[in-house]
Amino acid sequence: MSPLLTITNLNKIYHRHQPDEVIALRDISLKITAGEVVALTGPSGSGKTTLLSLLGCMSKPTSGSIQLRGRLVSKLPERFLAQIRRTSFGFVFQQYNLLRDVSVLENVMLPLYPSNQSFRVMKKTAGAVLERFELQKMMRKKVKQLSGGEQQRVAIARALVANPDIIIADEPTAHLDSNLSEILLGILANLNTEGKTIIIATHDPAIYQSPLIQRRVSLRHGEIVEDKNQ
């Protein structure tokens, strides 16, 4: 099976050639196939979030390459990267990154604004995703009026609204209790059975030791120290 994502000799250096230079990733090579559920683990500052950002085309590597379905994307202009982020990736951020003063419906519709869908279709699509996560009754509520668990579900709904192939989640259980974490794992498992590839950065054992995770990639000081199937 040809890999969905291939990264080769990837390096990421922040503030390059400056006194506060930080080497976030060193010579990372990794292949992820379609339908895989991969956990990126490691302590804080090990480079998990940076690697997720690079995989999700949210930043460019200092050196090395990233291929998506065999196509080199790491050197594409920003305009194309935006298009790839919109169509291929669904992001669930650690802090949810929802617009707090905006309604649930509008938050979920955000990835659809630059699409060619009409406003009516956008609302219908977002409504359907919200229904799936039992959020339809609160679609008019502002995000700041929701609980942490509800916000997490809105963030997942937003990640799925454009029907992407790859879900990228950064510490998705960081602000959830154990019950909500289990519900989240159930949601992710369902998404995987639908064929979605899931990449999760986590240091929560409840996540990376769960049966959902098929492969665990451990990072330390910006390097892969372990890559094993579970």
Binding site: G56, R86, F91, L98, L110, P111, A162
Partner: peptide
């Protein structure tokens, strides 16, 4: 907000 919009696939022009 700009960061979120960009991450969700909005282009700089948008």
């Amino acid at each position: 907000e700009i960061g979120i919009l960009k991450a969700l696939g909005w282009e700089t022009a948008d």
